[in-house]
Write a protein that binds this DNA or RNA. Structure first.
Lengths: 238, 238
DNA sequence: CGATCGTTTCGGCCGGGGCCGAAGTGTCCG
DNA sequence: CGGACACTTCGGCCCCGGCCGAAACGATCG
């Protein structure tokens, strides 16, 4: 009747990293996939630089963040896609967010719900619409878990995106990520990241300000309609 | 530059549920997929019944556990496969467990590493070996995320397991679960659960005591060899 | 009914840890 | 070089929350 797994303490200490409001807000901000400086995060969370410094050290040591020192700046980013996935998953299981209090916050929230990045892939109504279209056209199959079909690989190649070279590492080609506004799955993994990168590179989408929210350009609307039959106009607020 | 996501507090409060050593040990114990009484968990963790009661209430309210009252007993179990998945994921990212201190703990740990259940599917070296065999024989494909092939569906049907009826709900047919002893993926999802259930029902595996560890029977060794080419003898301790 | 047992509620103790400001370190720039 | 800046370290404050024991509650069983 012994306790083979003394894993309780390990799990608790790991979860504790995210169990603080300030640290959680750091991680959510870093979900945009970029590297932030300590000072930016401090201002974001409204705490003293000294406090931020200690939090970041804990997160780095715990394996959630990776850091890069440049001169007098300390840049941090999420340690990898698995970490981003984990945080999104947890966030998806947490209680739904409270209703926004100000008009500005509400409209910013609406923009996020329409189209945004989720670490390195597309999310929001745009992300789920694209995923639905890929499924409908047989480019992605979802009956037994997301995976790209042969037609899907061809579709990506025609787009100018070479996925075969992306077989480095253990990251799955396609995986589903639960969207916390839609509560529905959308495409993540290598293919999701490649699609998002292409959408930004090709000018289909542009970032709104410095936020994660996206605006779909004229070009993008045309491309999405022609390639996938997605009509961006339908993504307007409900 | 407002903060559209006031999701930090939500995430922190959710993570806090697992950030306590006692609650974490409860959840890890419940990973065996069964329902435990409050008293059993109290004894397991070595805390007073009153303490346990409060912890369980918080876990239930937070959506991690489901409870069922029967007479003077309070049974709790994980709220669902998604929760089990989440806890396994977190556990997989946490620091590796310390080396066991006693001989008994070491041998129990070895048994767990050899073959065990992970919520409702098979894990340990047995789980990864079966997954490898399914991949090798083209019954499961993993290049673009786990999914069952047509041949795989037939294989399950020949086994007497009807997966097509299991299309209720949103649970994926096949998904990968990271093993925390092997640090390698193994088959989870509906198919993984069905296979585990079949292995137990058909007497391929029997539980060792009341633990999650499994022993493979003579019948099971024969079946695994004939059906998948898995040689259980190779799973002995390194 | 009374005894017992599993669980819950409450009050109180105590430690961990998040917070800040002040002082220190290293970097960049004029 | 000297000042500005980004970050870190340290000391101290304070509160949150995990813990227990005592007592209450409700189900079960003689």
């Amino acid at each position: 009747m012994s306790q083979p797994q003394s894993r309780g303490p390990q799990l608790a200490r790991f979860a504790a990293l995210l169990a603080d409001e300030t640290r959680a807000s750091f991680c959510l901000a870093l979900l945009d996939g970029r590297a932030w400086t300590a000072g930016e995060l401090a201002r974001l969370a409204g705490v003293a630089p000294s406090t931020t410094s200690e939090h970041l050290s804990r997160l780095v040591e715990g394996g959630l963040l990776a850091e890069e020192r440049q001169g007098r700046h300390r840049y941090v980013r999420l340690a990898g896609p698995q970490i981003a996935q984990l945080i999104e998953d947890l966030s998806g299981h947490a209680a739904p967010p409270p209703a926004p209090r100000t008009l500005g916050a509400a409209s910013a929230g609406a923009a996020m719900a329409r189209a945004r990045t989720c670490y390195d892939h597309l999310a929001g109504r745009l992300g789920t619409a694209i995923t639905d279209a890929l499924l409908e056209r047989g480019l992605l199959q979802g009956a037994t878990g997301f995976s790209l079909t042969d037609a899907g690989l061809v579709w990506f190649r025609d787009l100018g995106v070479d996925l075969s070279s992306a077989r480095r590492g253990r990251r799955p080609m396609a995986r589903s990520c639960l969207d916390w506004t839609e509560r529905r799955p959308h495409l993540a993994g290598v293919a999701g990241a490649a699609l998002c990168r292409h959408a930004l590179d090709a000018g289909w989408c542009v970032r709104i300000g410095s936020q994660r929210a996206l605006r779909v350009s004229e070009d993008g609307q045309r491309a999405l309609r022609d390639l996938l039959g997605v009509r961006v106009a339908d993504l307007r607020d409900l």
